[in-house]
Amino acid sequence: MGEPVDVSAYVPDIDQPAETTRTQSTLEEWSTSGPIGQAVATSVRDTVAAAPAIDQQARDFVAAQPGGAQIIEQVDTALTEFFTTPPPDLLSR
């Protein structure tokens, strides 16, 4: 049921190391800007850390429903098609 897809081949204009550094810097700024910034930075970090588990929980829930496995298969197929044949305007950015 669904395998991770490396999107870097389909969205080649993203400089992952630079974006990672920029994101970490932004989160660090927020963390030291006061209680609200700290709360936002913590929330972002927690959400990113929890995303894989949430994805699995959602997949497990859908798979347990009548017809759920077919829905997951259709979604996975649509995503695979999107990432193997992305819309032309995505590649032109």
Rank of each mutant, 00 (worst) to 15 (best):
T21M: 13
A64M: 09
F82P: 00
W30D: 00
A50R: 12
T32F: 10
R45C: 02
A63C: 09
Q70M: 11
Y10E: 07
T80L: 12
A69P: 00
F83P: 00
W30A: 05
F61L: 14
T77V: 08
D46I: 07
G2C: 10
I72N: 02
V48Q: 08
V44T: 04
S92P: 00
Q24F: 07
E73L: 06
R45G: 03
L79S: 03
A64F: 03
V44Q: 02
Q70K: 14
D15N: 15
A49G: 07
P66G: 05
E81N: 13
I72T: 01
S33Y: 05
T23A: 09
T84H: 07
P86A: 08
E29D: 14
A50F: 07
V40C: 03
V40S: 01
V48P: 00
T26G: 06
E73H: 09
P88A: 11
A58G: 05
A63R: 01
L27Y: 02
T32V: 11
G37N: 05
A41M: 05
D13K: 11
Q38A: 11
D13F: 15
E19K: 06
V11E: 05
W30H: 01
P12H: 06
V62W: 01
P86K: 06
R22A: 14
T80P: 00
R45T: 13
P17F: 05
Q56P: 02
P52T: 08
T85Y: 06
P86N: 07
A64Q: 11
A9F: 08
E29P: 00
D89P: 02
Q16C: 08
T21C: 07
G67F: 08
D46H: 06
V48N: 05
A58E: 06
R45L: 10
A69C: 03
F61Q: 05
F83M: 10
R22P: 00
V62R: 01
Y10P: 00
E73G: 10
V7L: 12
Q65C: 10
L90Q: 07
A50N: 09
V5F: 06
Q65E: 11
I54W: 06
T47V: 11
D46K: 13
E81R: 09
A50C: 05
G37K: 01
D55K: 12
P17V: 11
D60Y: 03
E28L: 11
M1P: 03
Q70N: 13
E3N: 13
S25T: 12
T23S: 11
P87N: 04
A50G: 05
A9S: 14
Q24E: 14
Q65M: 15
Q74T: 10
I14H: 01
P12Q: 10
Q70A: 15
D76N: 14
R22C: 04
D60H: 04
T85N: 14
A58K: 09
Q74N: 12
G68L: 01
